[in-house]
Amino acid sequence: MSALPFSELAARIRARFPAVAERMSENRQPWLLVPAADLLAVCQLCRDDPELDFASLCDLTGWDLLRYPAQPPSDAIVVAYYLHSLRHRHHLTLKALAPRACCTLPSVSAIWPAAIAFEREVYDLLGVQFSGHPRLTRILLPEDWEGHPLRKDYAYPAAYHGVPHARAGQWFEDGPARAPAGAAPPAGGAA
């Protein structure tokens, strides 16, 4: 019944999974980089180990590292898991990388059912395929939307269902990239 500092949380996890790496963000927030192969087992340990006891998945989100000043430069999609222990009152951030070309990660929805909606959102906006998810469909955008808009190389659609995006006389020359009307689905859009 005591909150563990990050170093001890990390040590407990790394004793079982040596491939897990400790990292520090620019604003001095520590987090753990988990290889995709270990992700499910690490999450299971985080939830079931009585000393860790992360019963709550507070948030699951993601972002695109393309053109991000990360070291080393990467074009992967990050998926971040924010865990909280209601009993011990400590929390932990896990991150996993999904490579852009084959954008797949295991789904943690069997461990924390809260992840079902979160993972659908990350899939909708970033195109990460979560294997083992019970129903991985779009959650915010229409079902027939093309592409995943929070990818940095997403090209904005010029029209949706034949309704043009721009108003008459509106121009976008310094705006985000836009697909020409009637073009193929934008790059980065392949699911």
Partner: peptide
């Protein structure tokens, strides 16, 4: 109107 991919630019469409 400019920086959103999903907002309709005017309901009169």
């Amino acid at each position: 109107s400019k920086w959103s991919y999903s907002v309709l630019n005017g309901v009169d469409k």
